[in-house]
Protein backbone atom coordinates (compact mmCIF):
# COMPACT_ATOMS: atom_id res chain seq x y z
CA UNK A 1 0.00 0.00 0.00
CA UNK A 2 1.17 3.53 -0.78
CA UNK A 3 0.18 6.46 1.39
CA UNK A 4 0.93 10.01 0.31
CA UNK A 5 0.91 13.05 2.53
CA UNK A 6 -0.49 16.11 0.78
CA UNK A 7 0.23 19.57 2.13
CA UNK A 8 -2.27 22.34 1.50
CA UNK A 9 -3.33 25.23 3.76
CA UNK A 10 -6.34 27.07 5.16
CA UNK A 11 -9.58 25.18 5.35
CA UNK A 12 -11.20 22.80 2.90
CA UNK A 13 -12.77 25.03 0.25
CA UNK A 14 -13.50 25.34 -3.47
CA UNK A 15 -9.79 25.97 -4.01
CA UNK A 16 -8.85 22.52 -2.66
CA UNK A 17 -11.75 20.43 -3.97
CA UNK A 18 -9.79 18.97 -6.91
CA UNK A 19 -7.21 17.60 -4.48
CA UNK A 20 -9.87 16.01 -2.31
CA UNK A 21 -11.47 14.59 -5.45
CA UNK A 22 -8.14 13.29 -6.69
CA UNK A 23 -7.54 11.50 -3.40
CA UNK A 24 -10.98 9.94 -3.60
CA UNK A 25 -10.56 8.80 -7.22
CA UNK A 26 -7.09 7.38 -6.73
CA UNK A 27 -8.15 5.36 -3.73
CA UNK A 28 -11.22 4.12 -5.58
CA UNK A 29 -9.27 3.08 -8.68
CA UNK A 30 -6.62 1.20 -6.75
CA UNK A 31 -9.03 -0.48 -4.39
CA UNK A 32 -7.60 1.46 -1.42
CA UNK A 33 -4.00 0.51 -2.25
CA UNK A 34 -2.97 4.12 -2.94
CA UNK A 35 -4.33 6.67 -0.49
CA UNK A 36 -3.72 10.36 0.11
CA UNK A 37 -3.84 12.09 3.42
CA UNK A 38 -4.65 15.76 2.81
CA UNK A 39 -3.36 18.02 5.58
CA UNK A 40 -4.54 21.60 5.93
CA UNK A 41 -1.51 23.38 7.32
CA UNK A 42 -0.29 20.59 9.59
CA UNK A 43 2.77 19.69 7.53
CA UNK A 44 4.13 23.03 6.35
CA UNK A 45 3.57 26.75 6.03
CA UNK A 46 2.00 27.54 2.65
CA UNK A 47 5.07 29.45 1.45
CA UNK A 48 7.33 26.50 2.31
CA UNK A 49 5.36 23.83 0.48
CA UNK A 50 7.80 23.67 -2.41
CA UNK A 51 10.69 23.33 0.06
CA UNK A 52 8.78 20.49 1.70
CA UNK A 53 8.48 18.70 -1.63
CA UNK A 54 12.15 19.21 -2.37
CA UNK A 55 13.27 17.65 0.92
CA UNK A 56 10.79 14.80 0.66
CA UNK A 57 8.74 15.85 3.69
CA UNK A 58 5.53 15.02 1.82
CA UNK A 59 4.68 13.74 -1.65
CA UNK A 60 2.21 16.27 -2.97
CA UNK A 61 1.55 19.96 -2.34
CA UNK A 62 -0.16 23.07 -3.58
CA UNK A 63 1.41 26.54 -3.70
CA UNK A 64 0.97 29.83 -5.50
CA UNK A 65 3.58 31.24 -7.85
CA UNK A 66 3.26 34.75 -6.43
CA UNK A 67 4.17 33.64 -2.92
CA UNK A 68 7.82 33.31 -3.94
CA UNK A 69 8.47 34.38 -7.54
CA UNK A 70 12.19 33.54 -7.31
CA UNK A 71 11.40 29.89 -6.59
CA UNK A 72 9.28 29.50 -9.71
CA UNK A 73 10.18 32.23 -12.20
CA UNK A 74 8.87 30.41 -15.28
CA UNK A 75 5.23 30.16 -14.26
CA UNK A 76 5.04 33.78 -13.12
CA UNK A 77 4.18 34.41 -16.78
CA UNK A 78 0.72 33.20 -15.79
CA UNK A 79 0.45 35.99 -13.21
CA UNK A 80 1.18 38.81 -15.64
CA UNK A 81 -1.60 41.38 -15.62
CA UNK A 82 -4.25 41.49 -18.33
CA UNK A 83 -3.39 38.25 -20.09
CA UNK A 84 -6.97 38.23 -21.29
CA UNK A 85 -7.97 34.97 -19.65
CA UNK A 86 -11.72 35.08 -19.18
CA UNK A 87 -12.85 31.69 -17.92
CA UNK A 88 -11.59 28.99 -15.63
CA UNK A 89 -11.38 26.60 -18.60
CA UNK A 90 -9.02 29.00 -20.35
CA UNK A 91 -7.02 29.33 -17.14
CA UNK A 92 -6.63 25.53 -17.01
CA UNK A 93 -5.54 25.40 -20.64
CA UNK A 94 -2.88 28.10 -20.42
CA UNK A 95 -1.58 26.81 -17.08
CA UNK A 96 -1.18 23.25 -18.29
CA UNK A 97 0.49 24.43 -21.49
CA UNK A 98 3.07 26.39 -19.52
CA UNK A 99 3.57 23.56 -16.99
CA UNK A 100 4.50 21.30 -19.89
CA UNK A 101 7.09 23.71 -21.30
CA UNK A 102 10.64 22.35 -20.85
CA UNK A 103 11.75 25.48 -18.97
CA UNK A 104 8.97 24.98 -16.43
CA UNK A 105 9.65 21.26 -16.12
CA UNK A 106 13.35 21.93 -15.65
CA UNK A 107 12.85 24.60 -12.99
CA UNK A 108 10.55 22.35 -10.97
CA UNK A 109 12.97 19.44 -11.34
CA UNK A 110 15.48 21.56 -9.42
CA UNK A 111 13.02 21.28 -6.51
CA UNK A 112 12.66 17.56 -7.13
CA UNK A 113 9.08 18.38 -8.15
CA UNK A 114 6.84 17.99 -11.17
CA UNK A 115 3.64 19.83 -12.03
CA UNK A 116 0.56 17.69 -11.78
CA UNK A 117 -2.30 20.12 -12.33
CA UNK A 118 -3.38 23.68 -11.68
CA UNK A 119 -5.93 25.17 -9.29
CA UNK A 120 -7.62 27.59 -11.65
CA UNK A 121 -8.54 30.87 -10.04
CA UNK A 122 -10.88 33.43 -11.52
CA UNK A 123 -9.69 36.96 -12.16
CA UNK A 124 -8.82 39.10 -9.14
CA UNK A 125 -11.48 41.75 -9.36
CA UNK A 126 -11.60 44.43 -6.74
CA UNK A 127 -14.21 45.27 -4.14
CA UNK A 128 -14.27 48.78 -2.77
CA UNK A 129 -16.02 51.17 -0.46
CA UNK A 130 -17.57 54.51 -1.34
CA UNK A 131 -18.28 55.63 -4.88
CA UNK A 132 -17.55 53.03 -7.60
CA UNK A 133 -14.31 53.67 -9.44
CA UNK A 134 -15.01 52.95 -13.07
CA UNK A 135 -12.66 55.34 -14.80
CA UNK A 136 -8.90 55.21 -14.99
CA UNK A 137 -8.48 58.63 -13.37
CA UNK A 138 -10.30 57.38 -10.30
CA UNK A 139 -7.61 54.79 -9.58
CA UNK A 140 -5.16 57.59 -8.88
CA UNK A 141 -4.23 57.56 -5.17
CA UNK A 142 -6.47 54.56 -4.47
CA UNK A 143 -5.04 52.34 -1.74
CA UNK A 144 -5.42 48.80 -2.95
CA UNK A 145 -4.54 45.50 -1.32
CA UNK A 146 -3.01 43.65 -4.25
CA UNK A 147 0.22 41.69 -4.51
CA UNK A 148 2.63 40.75 -7.26
CA UNK A 149 1.85 41.59 -10.88
CA UNK A 150 -1.64 42.83 -10.12
CA UNK A 151 -0.26 45.23 -7.54
CA UNK A 152 2.24 46.48 -10.12
CA UNK A 153 -0.55 46.99 -12.64
CA UNK A 154 -2.53 49.16 -10.24
CA UNK A 155 0.61 51.06 -9.36
CA UNK A 156 1.11 51.83 -13.05
CA UNK A 157 -2.18 53.71 -13.13
CA UNK A 158 -1.40 55.69 -9.98
CA UNK A 159 -2.93 53.47 -7.29
CA UNK A 160 -1.03 52.72 -4.09
CA UNK A 161 -0.54 49.00 -3.40
CA UNK A 162 -0.68 48.55 0.36
CA UNK A 163 0.77 45.64 2.32
CA UNK A 164 -1.67 43.79 4.49
CA UNK A 165 -1.92 40.05 4.93
CA UNK A 166 -5.02 38.39 3.51
CA UNK A 167 -6.31 37.68 7.01
CA UNK A 168 -6.04 41.37 7.88
CA UNK A 169 -7.64 42.48 4.60
CA UNK A 170 -11.11 42.80 6.04
CA UNK A 171 -9.91 44.84 8.97
CA UNK A 172 -7.76 46.98 6.70
CA UNK A 173 -10.77 47.73 4.56
CA UNK A 174 -13.07 48.38 7.46
CA UNK A 175 -10.58 50.73 9.03
CA UNK A 176 -9.80 52.57 5.82
CA UNK A 177 -6.20 51.35 5.62
CA UNK A 178 -7.11 50.31 2.09
CA UNK A 179 -9.95 51.49 -0.15
CA UNK A 180 -10.10 48.37 -2.26
CA UNK A 181 -9.06 44.72 -2.11
CA UNK A 182 -8.26 42.47 -5.08
CA UNK A 183 -9.19 38.81 -4.55
CA UNK A 184 -10.90 36.00 -6.37
CA UNK A 185 -14.56 35.57 -5.46
CA UNK A 186 -14.09 32.73 -2.98
CA UNK A 187 -11.51 34.79 -1.08
CA UNK A 188 -13.80 37.84 -0.98
CA UNK A 189 -16.29 35.50 0.64
CA UNK A 190 -13.99 33.68 3.03
CA UNK A 191 -12.01 36.75 4.16
CA UNK A 192 -15.21 38.77 4.57
CA UNK A 193 -14.19 41.67 2.34
CA UNK A 194 -17.50 41.36 0.52
CA UNK A 195 -19.30 42.29 3.73
CA UNK A 196 -17.58 45.66 3.78
CA UNK A 197 -17.87 46.37 0.06
CA UNK A 198 -20.11 48.80 -1.78
CA UNK A 199 -19.11 47.69 -5.27
CA UNK A 200 -17.28 45.00 -7.22
CA UNK A 201 -15.66 45.27 -10.65
CA UNK A 202 -17.25 42.55 -12.73
CA UNK A 203 -15.13 42.91 -15.85
CA UNK A 204 -11.86 44.60 -14.92
CA UNK A 205 -10.15 41.18 -15.00
CA UNK A 206 -6.66 42.44 -14.19
CA UNK A 207 -5.11 39.02 -13.72
CA UNK A 208 -4.98 36.23 -11.19
CA UNK A 209 -2.59 34.11 -9.20
CA UNK A 210 -1.38 30.74 -10.40
CA UNK A 211 -1.45 27.92 -7.92
CA UNK A 212 -0.17 24.55 -9.15
CA UNK A 213 -0.33 21.19 -7.46
CA UNK A 214 3.03 19.44 -7.63
CA UNK A 215 4.34 16.00 -6.70
CA UNK A 216 7.73 14.82 -5.54
CA UNK A 217 9.51 13.19 -8.51
CA UNK A 218 11.01 10.30 -6.51
CA UNK A 219 7.65 9.50 -5.00
CA UNK A 220 5.99 9.65 -8.40
CA UNK A 221 8.59 7.36 -9.95
CA UNK A 222 8.35 4.82 -7.18
CA UNK A 223 4.61 4.35 -7.75
CA UNK A 224 3.58 1.05 -9.28
CA UNK A 225 2.33 1.22 -12.86
CA UNK A 226 -1.25 0.77 -11.73
CA UNK A 227 -0.92 3.50 -9.13
CA UNK A 228 0.67 5.92 -11.59
CA UNK A 229 -2.02 5.18 -14.11
CA UNK A 230 -4.71 5.81 -11.47
CA UNK A 231 -3.10 9.13 -10.56
CA UNK A 232 -2.58 10.37 -14.11
CA UNK A 233 -6.01 9.36 -15.30
CA UNK A 234 -7.69 11.07 -12.36
CA UNK A 235 -6.30 14.54 -13.04
CA UNK A 236 -8.79 15.50 -15.79
CA UNK A 237 -11.68 14.18 -13.69
CA UNK A 238 -10.50 16.10 -10.65
CA UNK A 239 -10.20 19.30 -12.68
CA UNK A 240 -13.68 18.81 -14.12
CA UNK A 241 -15.04 18.36 -10.63
CA UNK A 242 -13.25 21.53 -9.51
CA UNK A 243 -14.70 23.52 -12.41
CA UNK A 244 -18.19 22.27 -11.76
CA UNK A 245 -17.92 23.05 -8.06
CA UNK A 246 -16.41 26.50 -8.63
CA UNK A 247 -19.15 27.15 -11.17
CA UNK A 248 -21.72 26.70 -8.42
CA UNK A 249 -19.84 29.18 -6.28
CA UNK A 250 -19.80 31.71 -9.10
CA UNK A 251 -23.54 31.32 -9.57
CA UNK A 252 -24.04 31.96 -5.88
CA UNK A 253 -21.75 34.97 -6.16
CA UNK A 254 -24.42 36.99 -7.97
CA UNK A 255 -26.89 36.16 -5.23
CA UNK A 256 -24.38 37.24 -2.59
CA UNK A 257 -23.84 40.56 -4.34
CA UNK A 258 -27.55 41.15 -4.37
CA UNK A 259 -28.00 40.05 -0.78
CA UNK A 260 -25.27 42.38 0.49
CA UNK A 261 -26.33 45.24 -1.77
CA UNK A 262 -23.01 45.32 -3.59
CA UNK A 263 -23.08 47.13 -6.91
CA UNK A 264 -21.73 45.28 -9.94
CA UNK A 265 -19.54 47.76 -11.75
CA UNK A 266 -18.92 47.31 -15.49
CA UNK A 267 -16.00 49.28 -16.88
CA UNK A 268 -16.17 50.50 -20.45
CA UNK A 269 -14.05 48.75 -23.07
CA UNK A 270 -12.15 51.98 -23.62
CA UNK A 271 -11.23 52.21 -19.94
CA UNK A 272 -10.02 48.63 -19.86
CA UNK A 273 -8.03 49.07 -23.06
CA UNK A 274 -6.48 52.18 -21.55
CA UNK A 275 -5.59 50.31 -18.35
CA UNK A 276 -4.03 47.48 -20.37
CA UNK A 277 -1.93 49.81 -22.43
CA UNK A 278 -0.69 51.73 -19.39
CA UNK A 279 -0.09 48.77 -17.13
CA UNK A 280 0.10 45.50 -18.99
CA UNK A 281 2.48 46.29 -21.82
CA UNK A 282 5.36 47.82 -19.85
CA UNK A 283 5.08 45.21 -17.09
CA UNK A 284 5.12 42.39 -19.63
CA UNK A 285 8.09 43.85 -21.48
CA UNK A 286 10.00 44.30 -18.25
CA UNK A 287 9.16 40.72 -17.27
CA UNK A 288 10.31 39.31 -20.60
CA UNK A 289 13.63 41.13 -20.58
CA UNK A 290 14.20 40.18 -16.92
CA UNK A 291 13.56 36.51 -17.74
CA UNK A 292 15.64 36.52 -20.91
CA UNK A 293 18.55 38.01 -18.97
CA UNK A 294 18.31 35.06 -16.59
CA UNK A 295 18.29 32.57 -19.44
CA UNK A 296 14.58 31.84 -19.34
CA UNK A 297 12.71 32.05 -22.66
CA UNK A 298 10.31 34.80 -21.55
CA UNK A 299 9.06 35.75 -25.00
CA UNK A 300 8.47 32.13 -25.94
CA UNK A 301 6.50 31.52 -22.75
CA UNK A 302 4.35 34.57 -23.28
CA UNK A 303 3.69 33.56 -26.89
CA UNK A 304 2.79 30.07 -25.70
CA UNK A 305 0.14 31.55 -23.41
CA UNK A 306 -1.32 33.64 -26.21
CA UNK A 307 -1.36 30.76 -28.71
CA UNK A 308 -2.98 28.43 -26.22
CA UNK A 309 -5.58 31.05 -25.44
CA UNK A 310 -6.38 31.45 -29.14
CA UNK A 311 -6.44 27.70 -29.63
CA UNK A 312 -8.81 27.19 -26.71
CA UNK A 313 -11.18 29.83 -28.00
CA UNK A 314 -11.08 28.45 -31.54
CA UNK A 315 -11.86 25.01 -30.15
CA UNK A 316 -15.04 26.24 -28.49
Amino acid sequence: ATEWNVSVWGKRRAFTEHIEKLAELVSEKTGGEFTMNVSYGGLSKNRENLDGISIGAFEMAQFCAGYHPDKNRVITVLELPFLGVNTLEEEVAVSHAVYAHPAAVDEMAQWNAMYLMTSPMPQYNIVGTGEPRDELGEFDGMRVRATGGIGKAFEAVGAVPTSVTSSEAYQAMESGVVDTVAFAQHAHLSFGTINEADWWTANLNPGTVNCPVVVNIDAYESLSDAEREALDSSVPEAIDYYLENYGKLLTRWDEVLEEKGVEKVMLSDATIADFRATAADPIREAWISDMESQGIPGQELYDLVMETLDGTRAGN
Binding site: V164, E168, Q171, A172, E174, S175, G176, V177
Partner: peptide
Protein backbone atom coordinates in the same frame (compact mmCIF):
# COMPACT_ATOMS: atom_id res chain seq x y z
CA UNK B 1 -6.39 50.60 15.65
CA UNK B 2 -8.19 47.44 16.62
CA UNK B 3 -11.76 48.69 16.32
CA UNK B 4 -12.76 52.20 15.51
CA UNK B 5 -16.21 53.19 16.74
CA UNK B 6 -16.22 56.13 14.36
CA UNK B 7 -15.42 54.35 11.13
CA UNK B 8 -12.19 55.78 9.78
CA UNK B 9 -9.54 54.00 11.84
CA UNK B 10 -5.80 54.29 11.65
CA UNK B 11 -4.43 50.88 10.94
CA UNK B 12 -4.13 47.27 11.92
CA UNK B 13 -3.52 45.87 15.44
CA UNK B 14 0.11 45.17 14.65
Amino acid sequence: FVYNPFGDAWGTPT
